[in-house]
């Protein structure tokens, strides 16, 4: 087990290093030269040279690359072109906001998906089963910005039940995460984005849970439990659901990877001050240090979460360790 974790850890670090290197290449070598934003060609030639030297752009590319890697590790990610703030300061504040929304969305997806999946398998072919499948598929086909817009237009604009966006009322920035969690205004604002993300990913755990429940329900030990005369609710939740859950855990890593993507759209729509919104804003305003830092942080999030679900999965199902070598590579 320790051996497995260690090897996964090394893979994770290699992937991170590769992503950071590709990012360097993307920002330095692509046609839309990132430096044009700060160093205008209209400036005096001598000034241009001095500025390039100040940014370290006069050095050969390979040397720039090593400086870049060193700066990444020492957490010197540069300053924003627009606000001149430290990129690390901006990103670290945003990081927790993104994580908060992501976790609440995933919790909703998983609890609703697993719970409803069990019930749908139990009442197979009932209106609930068919309705659940259809609703899941419709929300999966609708990109999150459509669901989100619909919720905004009906529940916020028309009925006035929820605020239209943000994380807290303007001017009431809480001083800590606990202060934030104690604000009723925060809970009012997290409902719609959570629901939007949650419903978008619902179909996957829902259908997988339903299908693996049906598979488990056909097995011998369930027959035996039935023959013993156990109540069907006990069979469903205590005997069948436990084994069917494994299929959903496999999916968790896929869901986690996708959830980071859905986050970008939802945060922009609901003006949630997270990394996704920052990513869109900085890319649109060509604020490359911020875009680069945010991208890297999102990549760390994706890679780190994949690592955790990998470990979690091999812990839950020891059989997988052998075959995972073949599958997950």
């Amino acid at each position: 087990m320790a051996d497995y974790i260690l090897r996964r850890l090394i893979y994770m670090l290699i992937t991170l290093f590769a992503v950071a290197s590709i990012l360097f290449l993307m920002f330095r070598m692509l046609p839309g030269d990132a430096t044009l934003q700060v160093i205008s060609p209209a400036m005096d030639e001598a000034v241009q040279q001095r500025m390039k030297a100040a940014f370290g752009l006069d050095k050969p590319l390979l040397q720039q690359y090593f400086i870049y890697l060193k700066n990444l590790v020492t957490m010197e990610w540069g300053r924003s072109f627009v606000t001149a703030q430290e990129v690390t300061a901006i990103v670290s504040y945003r990081f927790w906001n993104t994580l908060l929304l992501m976790v609440s969305g995933l919790c909703m997806t998983l609890t609703l998906g697993i719970g409803l999946g069990i019930i749908m398998a139990w009442k197979r072919n009932s209106p609930l089963d068919i309705g659940g499948t259809v609703v899941g598929l419709i929300f999966q086909a609708a990109p999150p910005f459509i669901t989100g817009l619909l919720l905004l237009m009906t529940l916020s604009y028309r009925l006035g039940l929820f605020p239209t966006g943000g994380m807290y009322p303007a001017g009431a920035r809480p001083d800590s995460i606990f202060g934030l969690l104690l604000m009723p205004a925060f809970w009012e604002r997290i409902v719609l984005p959570t629901f939007t993300v949650g419903m978008y990913y619902l179909a996957t755990p829902l259908l997988v849970m339903r299908d693996s429940m049906l598979e488990v329900l056909g097995s011998d030990y369930i027959e035996l439990a039935r023959a013993k005369g156990l109540k069907s609710s006990v069979i469903m939740f205590r005997h069948a659901a436990r084994n069917a859950l494994l299929g959903v855990v496999t999916l968790a890593s896929i869901l986690v990877g996708f959830a980071v993507g859905g986050q970008v759209v939802v945060e922009s729509l609901f003006s949630w001050p997270g990394m996704g919104q920052l990513m869109v804003e900085s890319a649109a305003s060509h604020d490359y240090p911020v875009a680069q830092g945010t991208f890297l942080m999102l990549a760390i999030l994706v890679i780190g979460l994949n690592f955790i679900t990998d470990i979690l999965y091999s812990y839950l199902d020891p059989r997988i360790k052998v075959s995972a070598e073949g599958i997950s590579r």
């Binding site: 996708f258 993507g261 996704g276 990513m279 649109a284 991208f295 990549a299």
Partner: peptide, 21 residues
């Protein structure tokens, strides 16, 4: 392929589009 899996999906596309045009 693994390295590509480490890329956040939508941000990757957005960055490329904003750099390419």
């Amino acid at each position: 392929t693994d390295i590509l899996y480490g890329m956040p999906f939508l941000p990757f596309i957005i960055v490329l589009i904003s750099l390419f045009g």
